[in-house]
Design a protein around this nucleic acid. Structure first.
Length: 278
DNA sequence: GTGCGAATAGAAGGGAGATG
DNA sequence: CATCTCCCTTCTATTCGCAC
């Protein structure tokens, strides 16, 4: 997929990329081997040679930051299939008094196989070390919420990963209204007892846990793990929709199954939603 | 309110073709 | 050959929508 891409070359946009494809220049090597087929202004030609050679190197060296830096955000999804084997789906929950005092309560990371949750006061300190292993981070609305919050929390963390935010991508596919609404539309099912739980309940669960109820922490972790792991499905769903609109032949991704998540006593959710019931 | 991306419109750059 | 205009594309600025 990525090798069909020319829009990361300066002065090359959607139109010129389409023009290249129409003239039989489909991949980077096609241009480098037979650029005579197409006559570009000299400066653009120079940029093509420089950037396409750099692209080949960057792909060989897993230099995801090169592509993140130069691809228009709108097309960043194209790096996914090349870097999916080293990517992580991430979601945070926060708690606090809804202001500057807010803090991260949990972070869940799903790499497509294993899911791991970091909890404030238990193992949250291990998060910066672990996130550095991944070259690609996938979030929903993370450009605005999760990543800035993480950078504010871990002052010394310097992320070297690329970041795909699913929100604008799904919006482009006319899927909007928040993560839960989108899940419903594309057919992702959550356990019944989780369906009415949202970010506000996550705060209540954290407070209940602070009062000594460990079931509440498990409940919070499960909610967080649902959010994070569902991003896997959504990414593949979005990718398949986007390549269906793509004019060149590309391989679809299998729609993933949900991983095994933490086991929880569902009654804790009922208690959160009905605080006066004991 | 915040901050990002989408969308839009207008400006700027450069090639193609016409003209003298 | 030099110059001019036209046109296409990218670039830039601005506004708007969105989720939290």
């Amino acid at each position: 997929m990525l090798k069909y891409t020319f829009q990361h070359v300066p002065s090359v946009g959607e139109k010129l990329e389409k023009h290249l494809w129409r003239n039989g220049i489909l991949q980077w090597e096609d241009y480098l081997n037979s650029y005579e087929k197409i006559k570009l202004p000299y400066n653009i030609h120079r940029n093509m040679e420089i950037f396409l050679n750099k692209s080949i190197d960057a792909l060989n060296n897993n230099d995801v930051l090169f592509f993140e830096r130069f691809l228009p955000a709108k097309e960043l999804w194209r790096i996914y299939s090349e870097f999916m084997n080293n990517c992580v789906f991430l979601d945070i929950e926060t708690a606090g008094k809804n202001g500057r005092q807010d803090f991260i309560s949990t972070i869940s990371m799903y790499n497509g196989k294993n899911i791991k949750t970091y909890v404030k006061g238990i193992n949250l300190d291990a998060f910066p070390r672990d996130i550095e292993k991944y070259s690609l981070i996938i979030t929903y609305n993370g450009k605005l919420f999760d990543i800035p919050f993480i950078l504010h929390t871990f002052k010394h963390l310097h992320l070297k990963s690329a970041h795909i935010d699913l929100r604008p991508i799904l919006q482009r596919l006319h899927l909007k209204g928040g993560l839960k609404a989108i899940e419903k539309i594309v057919g992702i099912r959550r356990p019944k007892f989780l369906r009415k739980i949202d970010g506000y309940h996550a705060i209540l669960l954290w407070e209940k846990y602070q009062k000594g109820d460990s079931r509440a922490l498990d409940g919070l972790i499960l909610y967080n793990q649902e959010d994070a792991s569902n991003l896997h499905f959504l990414m593949h769903y979005a990718y398949n929709k986007l390549i269906a609109l793509f004019p060149l032949p590309t391989e679809k991704l299998p729609l993933p199954q949900k991983p095994q998540l933490i086991k929880v006593d569902p009654s804790v959710y009922f208690e959160i939603r009905n605080p006066h019931h004991r």
